[in-house]
Every structure is written in C-alpha cells, then in structure tokens.
Design a protein around this nucleic acid. Structure first.
Length: 806
DNA sequence: AGCACGCCGACT
DNA sequence: GTCGGCGTGCTC
C-alpha cells in the first residue's frame, strides 16, 4: 500500500502530496488523517496522510518511518475541508491542516549529534571527543548557538564518519496520567502482612489498616495523590505495591480548566419574539436542511437563550454543536451559561487555556466525550462527526477573520462545514455586518429579528455631546461637563459607570512644540505611545521601548509635550477629579497576566469599584445590574482610520458599548462624546437605528465600489529594502492589470499608512472585482514568482476579502 | 524549510 | 591549490 502525505513544510514548492510506501509493519495501521514521520530529502519530517492507494507514478518510494497517532486526527471531512480552504484562501495545504489542530500537536524538530566511532574520534580529534563525553545531549542548534567554534571540526568528523546526525521528530502533545492504586490481595492476605510487619513499619501498617477498613476491596481504586492527601504515606504505598499486595496503574486524565461544579439551569420561558425566531431553526434541524439564519437582535434581547434551546434540540437528535464567540467575550460568565445548561457535555476552547488544556479539550471532542464546543475562531474546526448546528455569536466581529496565515474567515468555514453536514448556521448580532445583512435582504440568509429586550427593559437613552462645543467653552478635559456630572451622580447613588476609550497607554504621541518632531519607532512607521507607569515610550506594533527624551532629538529644545489621551491618562484624570471614586482600568497592559481579566471583572461585579475604564475588551458581554451609565469618551477615534469599514466599526462599537447600560431593573443612560456628532454612524447608533445606518452605509459602499457590492483582494509586500519592495510592487501591479479582465479594477501600488513595521517596508495593491474567473490562477502565479523564503526576502501576502485594509 | 550542488574570490 | 561565500533547485 502507498500513502499520499503532505509534508509539514509550509512552502510553495512542497505544497503537494508525496507518495510513501507503507512498510509491512504498518500495513493496516496507517489511515488517512493520521500524522506520520517520513524521510524527506536528507531530513525527517512530520506529514499528514490524506489518501491510501495501490499504485504510484513514482518508481522509487521511500517508506514511512513511524505513525504518530493511534487514530486519525483529521476526519475525512476535515481533510476535504483543508484542501478546500487551502484553495480558497491560497495557503499551503499543510497550513490549513495545522490550523485545525491544537498547537500542542505541532511537531518539534531536533538534530542530535551521535558518536559513531568513539575510538576513531579520539585519535582524530581528542578535544572534540572529550567535549562530547561531557555533553549529555548534543543538540545541533544549541551547539551552533554556544559552541560555534567547534562547527568546522564537527563537520569534518561527520564527513569522516566518526560522528553522525540524527533527526528527531517530537510530538509535543502529552497526555496527563495519574497513578491509580487498586488492591490485588484479599483482606486475609492484608491481615497476614499486617501481623508479619516489623513494629518500625508504622506507616505501612497504617496503610494496611486503611485498606482492611474498606468495604469492597476488589472494586477499590483511588488516585495515589488522593490517598496521600488522606494521610497515608506515599513510600509505604509503593512498598506495598512492590510486595504485590497493591496494584499501581497509569490512567489517562483530562486536564480540566473548569473543575468547579456548575449549578444546572433550566430552559427559560421564551418571549413571543424569541419563540418565533427559534421555530425556523428547529424546523431546519428537523429536516436536516442547510440554511443560514441571521439573528438580528438588539443587545439584551435574549439571543443566548435561543442558542441554548437550539442546542438542546441538537443533543436530542444525538448530534453536535459548535458555538463561536469572539475571544474577548469568552468570559467565565459566558462559559457558565453553557456549562450551566449542558454540564460536562461542553468543551471550551480559548487562548486563556494552557497548551495541554487545549489539547485535552480537543481530545474530548474527538473521543466524543462532549457534544458542544464553545470557543473562539479556531473552534470552528472541532472534529465533530455529526454536526447538527453551528452558531456564530457577534457575527460581525472582525476577530473571526484570522489576520495571519492561514487567513480564513470562521464564518465562511462554518457555512462550508454546515453544507456538508446538512445543518443550519445561526449568525447572531445586534449590529450585523453589512455583508450578512445584505444577504439576508436578498433572502440568501433567513432573517430573524428580535426588536425588544427581554422583560421589556427599554434601551438606554443616549446623549451625544459635541466635543467641539465643549472646547469652545474652554473645557479641554477628556470629560465633558455633562459626562462628569453624570458620573458624580452615579457615585452618589452608589451605581456603577463604564467608560470606554479605544486607546491604551497614557498619551498617544510625543511632539516637540518648537519644531513639530513626533517621536517615532525606529523600526516601524508609527509614533510611540507614552506609558506613564514605566515612564517609557512604547511601540504598539513591535513592542519597542525607549525612555522619554529630555530634549527634542531634532532641534534639542526642551519643549517636548504629550498629546492624545489613552486609558492611563483618563485613569489619572479620574483620580484627580473624583478622588473618592474607585476605578478599575482594563486594557492590554492590566490584563496581560493570566486570570487578571477575570479577576478585574469579578471585582467590578462585586462592586469593589465604581468605574470600569477600558478599551475594546469591555465593549462586549458585560452584564452588571448596577451599571446605569456608559460613557464613550471619543466616539470618532475609529472614524479617521483610512478603512472603508470605519463607519461600520464606529456604529458597532457605540451600539455594543451602549448595550452595557441598564440591563436590569435600573434604567440605563449613555453619553457619547464626539468631535463629529452629526456623522450618521454616531447619530444612528444613538437612536438605536440599525436599518437607517444600513441604508446610509450601503449607499456609500455602492458609490465607492466596496463590499458587499464588490469583492476585494489585498496584496501586501514587505522587504527590508524599500527599493526592492517598490520594484516588486510595480511588477505585480502590472501582472494584475495585464491578466485580469477590464471590469476588474487594480489600485496601487501604494504605501500603506503605516509604511514600515519591524524594519520591513510595505507596499500594497488592491483588486476590486465582481466576477473574475482568472483571479485565483493569477494570484497563484504571483505567489509562485514573487514569494521568497528566508528572513531578508520579499514576503508576499494575499488576503482575499480582507476585513481591515491595514 | 533544509540541504547539496555548483561556481566564483581570498587565504593557509 | 583549498575554504567558504550564497544563488539554484530538489525533496516521494
């Protein structure tokens, strides 16, 4: 038998299956979807078996070395999905496979130097021989790092055959094991041993007495650490194991990040609206019919309950469900809602888990120990065999699109998988993406509308504050008079406030007042942000950090001033203006440590703070009864991005943040501060009028030829040498113009607004098209010709349907 | 991605 | 003459 194998090298020239002979010893063991180690060129690599066959067009086949998995890690459906994905987003097929598996399953490659002829080596190079005698595990890469002076001599020894190099392929995935003790003796035998034991063996006697006391010895088993915790001695137990009275077993265990028992909840009564929305989803499941639903429901309209009750039906049908939630709203609160309803049938996948935990959650899915997975983007690849439903909450979120290779959109993958499984997809959002809403309008998707909050809580009243007016009246603070008054009022009433600002750090840039120089990152084309806690300037793109210059680096004047406002500055302002207020700040800087995100939210929930101040990450999912005021400090901070989705993002953000107010019995109020208070994104968000925003934005998209009216492709090039990128960009633009149809428009090459990142200069070309059959072949050709490998080379990245034009 | 092959310059 | 620079091309 012959296996087709995709080699674990994400590069163009090896992006095709390689044939390998299956040795007799592995006949019947190797199956499609398994990982194998194979000899490749002069190295050994991991590969994915995609197919078995009888004949190959190749004459001399190498044999598979070993199999890495007992059972396939990719189902047939996922293998096909990987191929489809690679084709549709132009990435190597292995990259697609890799994305479907937890990181722990990525192979680790090591080269180890082995001594073949110790005697010969001693004669030829006694020095080297003694070096290898003292190093236990001579790993090639480590020797290159710390003993590079030896390399020449090692190479010569290899040529002469006294040393050789061994390629190791290590699978990082490890299964956690626990030692379990059972008893393989009768009580009689135990009593006999007890009598025989020396008086000094006090601990062994204790242990024996413990086991004699057990009611049912034959079925007794317990992890060894539990026995130790109960006061028995580990040494005594192992002694008894040695004597053959006890038995020690290794048992596989899942690492469980959510081990606390969860109180079970029951389905809630649905409102008429909710019931009306749920019915067609259930019907579609009953009929095994693939349909895409767009559930457009205002914040607080009870979409989650609809999800939960649809999943209920999935489980009744003995099928499985995937629930995608944006990473930042995958809070413990959210997880609890699903665990509360479905208990241990739920696996959770998100970045906060350790490698091992993620691997175990994944294994629970593959081994069919769970029926539901709640997770961020990559959970869309959960290896379920009988999918009954896929839910994508907050469907408009840009985090569903992976921003680096493989650049897939979880929504597209979901729809593709659901088609294969003949099951529905439910997209949920209070602010659907224009693409999705347009499809619903065209009846490609089925629209489900929830216009009211559950229990008929009114949507919060929204006030827009004109910051220009505020400036004219001499108020240069980050707080308008109105907002500050309202915050004070909440403090007095013992209610809580959420303040939202989309910038972290203290101030966004440092400028010299006398010559206008702005301090920039030496590696990126971006101004540095001042962080007050460390009193340093930092680059939010590459992490570069430097001290604040005392004088201007250009003109040497000491007129360096801080401009722009970040969360740190707002925090300082709050402390100054309202010293009695307790403030929690949440941004990347305060939530870097594992678990701190949850900790801060818990503190706020327990009313240990009056004000929650934060960036993006507080816009979603928060549901605290005492929050009656939400302030958006700079509503237009996103509007000035040179991105056709700027208005859409602004509208979504304001709507989402506003939704945090007044979710319970106390009525909510929202204050939006803006320099462009008459922008339709601001006004429509304030009026909670999605339809109106949709109409205005669609007119603009139509006028400028943006999605959903046209499709986009963004081709980005980077190179350390600005001249080289420019040349390549020109040539690529020419190829596009020559090979694509006339109705397709090619823009660029242009230098993007951030022209350099991490010492690499950037250029971009954009393609706008409606129908373009030649597109994929032409893009393939470009990748083939221009994509180089290596660090100081031209990097070409192609983004089909980009979500951001950065 | 690695690694070898291969063809040019500056050294024991 | 050799060592070693990195351009090119292949890996079932």
């Amino acid at each position: 038998m012959i296996a087709e194998v995709y080699i674990d090298i994400p590069a163009n020239p090896v992006n095709k299956p390689f044939d390998y002979r299956i040795p007799e010893s592995l006949e019947g063991v190797v199956a499609p979807g398994m990982r194998v180690t194979v000899p490749f060129g002069r190295t050994r690599r991991l590969g994915f078996v995609t197919e078995l066959k009888e004949v190959s067009t190749f004459k001399k086949l190498k044999a598979i070395d070993s199999v890495e998995d007992h059972a396939p890690v990719l189902t047939q459906e996922l293998i096909d999905l990987g191929r489809w994905l690679a084709d549709s987003i132009l990435c190597p097929t292995v990259t697609a496979f890799q994305a479907m598996l937890p990181a722990a399953m990525k192979a680790e490659y090591k080269k180890i130097i082995k001594i073949e002829q110790p005697e010969q080596l001693k004669i030829e190079d006694a020095d080297l021989a003694s070096f290898f005698e003292t190093t236990k595990q001579p790993i090639w890469s480590e020797i290159v790092k710390s003993h590079s002076e030896l390399l020449k001599r090692i190479n010569r020894a290899i040529r002469q055959g006294s040393l050789s190099i061994h390629q190791l392929v290590r699978n990082q995935a490890t299964v956690k094991k626990v030692s379990v003790i059972s008893v393989c003796a009768t009580k009689e035998q135990l009593r006999l041993e007890l009598a025989k034991l020396d008086d000094r063996a006090k601990r062994q006697k204790e242990a024996l007495q413990f086991f004699i006391k057990q009611s049912d010895l034959s079925s007794f088993h317990s992890p060894i650490h539990a026995l130790v915790k109960d006061g028995l001695s580990r040494d005594a137990i192992t002694k008894l194991v040695d004597k053959g009275l006890l038995h020690l077993d290794q048992m596989e265990q899942f690492r469980d990040p959510y081990k606390h028992p969860v109180e079970q909840t029951k389905p809630l009564n649905l409102t008429d609206e909710q019931a009306k929305a749920l019915a067609p989803i259930l019907q579609s499941m009953n009929e095994n019919e693939h349909r895409v639903f767009l559930c457009h429901g205002v914040t607080g309209s009870g979409k989650t309950e609809i999800y939960l009750q649809s999943i209920q039906r999935v489980l009744e049908h003995k099928r499985q469900a995937i629930v995608l939630v944006p990473e930042i709203s995958l809070t413990p609160q959210m997880v609890l809602r699903f665990k509360g309803r479905f208990g241990d049938q739920v696996a959770v996948m998100h970045s906060g888990l350790s490698r091992g935990e993620k691997y175990d959650e994944w294994r629970k899915i593959r081994e069919e120990k769970v029926q539901v997975v709640v997770g961020a983007r990559s959970a869309i690849f959960a290896p379920f065999k009988k999918l009954g439903l896929i839910i994508i909450d907050e469907e408009h979120e840009s985090s569903y699109k992976q921003e680096d290779m493989p650049r897939y959109h979880a929504r597209d993958v979901a729809i593709h998988r659901a088609e294969k499984h003949h099951c529905p997809v439910v997209l949920g959002s209070a602010t659907p993406s224009l693409e999705s809403f347009a499809r619903a309008r065209k009846q490609v998707y089925t629209l489900l509308s929830l216009k009211e909050r559950v229990n008929h809580r009114p949507l919060p009243s929204v006030h827009i504050v004109d910051l220009r007016e505020e400036m004219r009246q001499g108020n240069h603070s980050v707080f308008s008079k109105e907002l500050l008054e309202k915050v004070k009022d909440r403090l007095q009433k013992n209610e809580q406030t959420v303040l939202f600002l989309n910038r972290r750090g203290y101030s966004t840039f440092v400028m010299c007042r006398s010559c206008g120089t702005v301090v920039k990152c030496p590696h990126c084309d971006i101004s540095l942000t001042y962080h007050r806690t460390q009193h340093s300037l930092r680059c939010h793109y590459c992490g570069y950090e430097q001290n604040v210059p005392a004088t201007c680096p250009t003109c040497d004047s000491d007129a360096m001033r801080f401009f722009g406002t970040g969360t740190q500055k707002v925090e300082a302002e709050l402390n100054r203006l309202l010293p009695e207020a307790r403030v929690i700040r949440m941004d990347v800087d305060t939530t870097r440590k594992k678990g701190s995100h949850e900790k801060l939210l818990r503190q706020f929930g327990e009313e240990k703070a009056d004000i929650l101040l934060g960036t993006q990450m507080i816009a979603k999912g928060l549901d605290f009864p005492k929050v009656t005021l939400v302030g958006v400090l700079a509503a237009d901070s996103l509007l000035h991005l040179s991105d056709f989705r700027a208005s859409e993002k602004t509208f979504q953000l304001i709507t989402q943040v506003s939704g945090r107010a007044g979710r319970h019995s106390l009525p909510g109020e929202v204050v939006i501060q803006s320099y462009t208070p008459d922008h339709y994104a601001v006004i429509d968000a304030a009026r909670h009028d999605y339809e109106s925003f949709y109409r205005e934005e669609m007119t603009i998209r139509h006028r400028w030829g943006y999605p959903p009216f046209f499709y986009l492709v963004l081709i980005s090039l980077t190179h350390p040498d600005p001249a080289k990128v420019a040349v390549a960009a020109d040539r690529i633009a020419a190829i596009l113009k020559n090979n694509l149809s006339d109705s397709t428009q090619i823009y660029g090459p242009v230098v993007p607004s951030v022209s350099k990142i991490k010492d690499r200069y950037r250029y971009q070309c954009m393609v706008k098209y409606k129908r373009e059959p030649a597109l994929v072949p032409v893009l393939h050709q470009i990748l083939q010709h221009f994509q180089e490998t290596g660090k100081d080379s031209l990097q070409v990245s192609i983004d089909l349907n980009p979500v951001a034009l950065m």
